[in-house]
Design a protein around this nucleic acid. Structure first.
Lengths: 109, 109
DNA sequence: ATTATTGATCGGTCATTTGCGATGGAAGAT
DNA sequence: ATCTTCCATCGCAAATGACCGATCAATAAT
């Protein structure tokens, strides 16, 4: 239980996922051949200015959900699958903690 | 697939979960005897003003994550388990859509 | 009827987020 | 060296969010 996400981390990550454009960006990254692409690729799939896309990317980056690798004059972004499964586990734990059956039994530790 | 959550819905719900206080409120509701309690109960478990707690509750309410039932002079709040599992499914679907194995196979529909 | 309790809502402040165009640095091409 | 491409970052404006104290309607108790 040592490296479990705390509420702050979970909330931060949730907030990063709390914008449809960022969900879309993640999907765009996921559907790339090598699972990676540059900012320009993302931008031309979205009706937003480059600076705006770059900012959304930064949010995902800060949340640890994606990774940046400099590659020549462009950057390659890819999804951090490890973070994603970590989040999945944390989310599952959260839901379980909120389930009605977990009320009393959880106190028997 | 007709009633699946769309990106907007998912993002909205994520944003509602994107604050540690609201996560805490959900946990407080979950750990109540009948899985329900009033605003005052929640407030005295948190270092926040009543108006602030009420506002957080409203966010959860608007996101459909909790339910309000008037009961005499006070309101009873409880977690909407149906929404929670709906969200769990949507989140699972999201993660699956972002997984590397889902890239090509998903196009064979 | 008067009083007390509950809790939603209003108004205000301050911080953060979202969007944009413009700027500038870094790497590749000429 | 010059020029182009890529894109992070910097203002800037508008909108949203978080928090508070104050208010007010509704119900319960006296």
């Amino acid at each position: 239980m040592s490296d479990a996400m705390r509420d702050d981390d979970i909330a931060n990550t949730m907030r990063a996922l709390g914008h449809p454009v960022r969900l879309e960006i993640l999907r765009i990254l996921a559907n790339q051949q090598q699972g990676q692409c540059c900012c320009a690729d993302v931008t031309e799939s979205l009706p937003l200015a480059q600076s705006t896309v770059s900012q959304h990317i930064k949010v995902l980056l800060d949340a640890g959900l994606i990774d940046r690798k400099a590659h020549g004059t462009r950057n390659r972004y890819c999804i951090r699958q490890d973070k994603l499964s970590e989040l999945g586990a944390a989310f599952g734990g959260l839901l379980q903690g909120l389930a009605p059956t977990a009320n009393k039994e959880a106190e028997l530790a």
